[in-house]
Every structure is written in C-alpha cells, then in structure tokens.
C-alpha cells in the first residue's frame, strides 16, 4: 500500500498517525506540504527516520523544489517526479491521508 500524505506535520497529525498503521512492504509518498516532514533537522524528522528503517519513503520532487527544500532532506529519502508518482500508484493500492 502507498500511504500518500500531503499535510505538514506541524499543521496536522497525518504523518504521525499514518506511521502507526503502516505495514511491512508499504511505502510512503510525501506530497504538497507533506514534504516538510522529510526535511532533516526539524521537530518531526525522527518520525520519517524511524519509518525509513522498515519502509521506503518518497517525496514528490516538484513539491520539494517549490518549497526550497532541495538538498535539505533526510538521507535515504527517494525523490520522484509525477511519472514516478504514477509508477508508485501502479505498484501499490493508494491510501491518502488528508
């Protein structure tokens, strides 16, 4: 399952909550304001770091670039463009955490 999260962790508990429900082999895609959760050295960085120990975490590149976060992400985060987003949807059923 692909857990797609578009909320900043500072604004909503979406990332924190979703990470409680994630199963083995599930992957995470952070989009829109959700990409703030993938920035290194911020309050919620451990949420994503802990997830990456067991699950793959992706960010949507255009959203990262739009928010000035290029080069500021946690090590191990994978960046996809819109076509890469489509590939993830093809591979996994989608669970959007609004």
């Amino acid at each position: 399952m692909l857990h797609m999260i578009n909320q900043s962790p500072f604004r909503a508990p979406s990332i924190e909550t979703a990470m409680r429900f994630i199963q083995a082999a599930d992957v995470v895609l952070l989009t829109e304001d959700g990409v703030y959760g993938a920035q290194s050295s911020q309050k919620y960085a451990d949420l994503i770091k802990n997830t990456m120990a067991n699950n793959e975490v992706y960010v949507l590149g255009p959203d990262v670039k739009a928010r000035g976060l290029e080069g500021k992400l946690l090590d191990g985060i994978k960046t996809v463009d819109y076509e890469g987003f489509v590939d993830l949807v093809e591979k996994h059923n989608v669970n959007t955490w609004l």
């Binding site: 578009n6 989009t31 829109e32 819109y82 076509e83 489509v86 590939d87 949807v89 093809e90």
Partner: peptide, 30 residues
C-alpha cells in the same frame, strides 16, 4: 485510474497535483 478531488481550485493545491498526476499517468499510457 479514477481520481477524486475534494477541495477547491486555487484555494488548495489538490486540483494542481491531481492535474499533474493525470497528465503523467496518461503520458505513461494509463
């Protein structure tokens, strides 16, 4: 692929992300 959009245009990025996603999906032959 079916798409659902639950928020207003300009107010929220949802309509933009959905559009870019749809464009990419169609380009890839879905």
């Amino acid at each position: 692929i079916g798409v659902q959009i639950k928020d207003g245009p300009y107010n929220h990025q949802a309509a933009d992300t959905a559009y870019q996603f749809i464009k990419a999906a169609r380009k890839k032959g879905h």
